[in-house]
């Protein structure tokens, strides 16, 4: 009996050690002009997060120690993202936006893995023209992307979110920022 309990204890210790071990953070090839902030989000299971920001663009990458993660689990989580994003914009910035699902793919080939990819349009009502002839238009001001995949060689799941501007009429410089955001996103790999 003591041998069996010891065996279960050893196995439990192995699993706990595995989940607590540091991850190899997924990162882009080049962070370009974005500022980087990274930290350990959780020690058990080990989750490392890196945030890349540059004004109106944002890329967040979380690397999670896990045994295996089905794509469907990521999809289920991402399907709630639109509501969270609307609430976040309202509470953090006092902005009323609509976040509209645009696409979702489960077998998206990314960085050598099968990834889940959801994209959303951030739609904001913008008033154009001058009184009394002004009119309100729904404009797609930004794109939110959520991607996740399992790195089998590291036993880590990578979850990435990004926000990239898509409305350049008032600020043409945002076009370059969008290009840089896409470059960062496309360059993220397990290690």
């Amino acid at each position: 009996m003591a041998v069996v309990v010891s065996a279960y204890g050893c196995a439990l210790l192995c699993y706990c050690t595995f989940f607590a071990m540091p991850v190899t953070p997924a990162e882009p090839l080049d962070a370009l002009s974005f500022s980087i902030e990274d930290r350990v989000y959780s020690y058990f299971p080990r989750i490392h997060e890196t945030i890349y920001t540059n004004g109106k663009a944002f890329v967040g990458v979380a690397t999670i120690r896990t045994i295996s993660a089905p794509s469907s689990a990521f999809s289920a989580a991402f399907e709630r993202l639109d509501g969270y994003a609307e609430d976040y914009a309202r509470e953090q910035y006092g902005i009323e936006v609509d976040v509209v699902p645009e696409s979702n793919e489960t077998g998206y080939e990314f960085s050598g893995h099968d990834a889940v990819r959801h994209t959303y349009a951030v739609v904001k009502a913008i008033t154009v023209g001058y009184p009394p002839f002004e009119t309100t238009l729904d404009v797609r001001v930004a794109e939110i992307g959520a991607m996740a995949w399992f790195c089998n060689v590291d036993f880590e799941a990578v979850v990435m979110f990004y926000v990239a501007p898509t409305y350049f009429v008032d600020e043409p410089d945002l076009q370059q920022l969008r290009i840089e955001t896409v470059m960062i996103v496309e360059g993220v790999a397990c290690h």
């Binding site: 065996a7 190899t24 036993f155």
Partner: peptide, 14 residues
């Protein structure tokens, strides 16, 4: 990675 060896070794006691 060492973490994978640790995970694999969980089967050894059994």
């Amino acid at each position: 990675d060492v973490s994978i060896l640790v995970l694999a070794s969980a089967s050894v006691p059994f």
